[in-house]
């Protein structure tokens, strides 16, 4: 039997934080690709610590629903699950640990699907800029790095006159991305897992956005939903899980 465990951050205060994980889990469950699909969290139950206890399968795929490689994916998740590498054998279970979603090669496609959702029925005029908004932190360069990575991958496709980035906790700051864009139309896509405080409050407040379309500084600004809640993220989670099967077998790393 094969089990997929999706790991989310979760929240002690906000009931919507874990929603994307539950929704993606349900989408994947319906495909029948896994015998079990289980959700677990850092801040909610079941904890990562106990998620493996609840699955019956002997082949287990752990996929973090996190954007960037960093503190959670490199330190917290492996520690809480008791993993010692990409493949860990625990009793009868072989646990395969996948990389985060944001760095995956399929991520730019999901970002562009978000743009498509936002711009459906709307036409851009003149120069158009796409700006990816991330959390970022000066404490870990990977947090911002994944946003730059996706911006570079989208830039290569030549779809927009410019592709920029903006962050909550590092430079360039979100508050100045519209001003800095040399464009008539600016499309903003938050590269966040959940729709929550940042996407609904801090980002709109930093920029003075009033909805999906705001006129600011002579530019039209389009503000999309977070990438992480897009239904296609479920495909990315599955692709991340499948990818781990290409890793070396369990014989090599027995705990």
């Amino acid at each position: 039997m094969r089990a997929l465990i999706i790991v989310g951050h979760g929240s002690h205060l906000n009931e919507d934080s874990s929603l994307p994980v539950y929704e993606h889990a349900e989408r994947i469950r319906r495909t029948g690709e896994f015998d079990e699909v289980v959700e677990c969290f850092w801040k909610e139950e079941p904890s990562m610590r106990h998620a493996l206890d609840t699955v019956e399968s002997d082949e287990v795929f752990v996929v973090p629903a996190f954007i960037s490689e960093g503190y959670f994916t490199q330190q917290v998740i492996p520690r809480e699950f008791g993993l010692d590498g990409p493949v860990t054998v625990k009793g009868h279970k072989t646990v395969r640990y996948a990389g985060p979603l944001g760095t995956f090669e399929g991520m730019p496609d999901v970002i562009l699907e978000r743009v498509e959702d936002l711009m459906r029925g709307r036409e851009t005029n003149g120069r158009t800029a796409l700006v990816l908004l991330g959390h970022g932190t000066d404490l870990n360069k990977n947090s911002g790095g994944v946003i730059y990575l996706n911006a570079a991958r989208i830039r290569e496709r030549g779809l927009y006159d410019e592709v920029g980035v903006g962050f909550l906790d590092q430079k360039p700051e979100i508050g100045s991305v519209v001003e800095d864009a040399d464009a008539d139309d600016v499309i903003l896509i938050p590269v966040f897992i959940a729709d929550g405080w940042h996407t609904r409050e801090t980002i709109p407040e930093d920029l003075g956005l009033t909805g999906e379309v705001t006129h600011l500084e002579g530019k039209r600004v389009f503000y999309g939903a977070p990438v992480g809640t897009h239904p296609s993220m479920a495909n990315l989670i599955v692709a991340r899980a499948r990818e781990t099967e290409l890793l070396p077998g369990k014989e090599t790393q027995v705990v």
Binding site: E56, G91, K93
Partner: peptide
């Protein structure tokens, strides 16, 4: 020990039944 031969691994199927 959770299982004689496999410490730390609970048996979810046995628990269910």
């Amino acid at each position: 020990t959770i299982q004689e031969d496999h410490p730390g691994v609970a048996d979810a199927a046995a628990a269910r039944e």
